[in-house]
Amino acid sequence: MLLVYCPYCQVERPETEFSCRGQAHIARPADPDTVSDEDWVEYLYLRDNTKGVYAERWRHIHGCGRFFNAVRHTVSDDFLAFYKAGEPMPDLDTLAKEAGK
């Protein structure tokens, strides 16, 4: 069971308090009518399947209920960063280097 840090509650808690909601930073297009069919399908269904550092969405569903983002190494399951929704994605390469991954 992973240990997850909620940046709103500022506590580390076991994974069972959270739910993982897939890849982060996939914004719903602001004006869907102008989006091509291909791009809409991309938005709906296509996600990266990274072996390595990966930014994903988590929700502290049995805590504060807030959504936030985390950078996780998909092989080791180590978390490299946690940040609030709306904050920019950190540079994944830099994070990976710092962590020696």
């Binding site: 739910s19 909601r21 914004a27 719903r28 969405r57 929700r59 569903i61 959504f67 929704a85």
Partner: peptide, 11 residues
């Protein structure tokens, strides 16, 4: 409820 929270908080 979770879907509504998701759109509300993140979109």
């Amino acid at each position: 409820f979770a879907t509504m929270e998701d759109y509300l908080q993140t979109e």
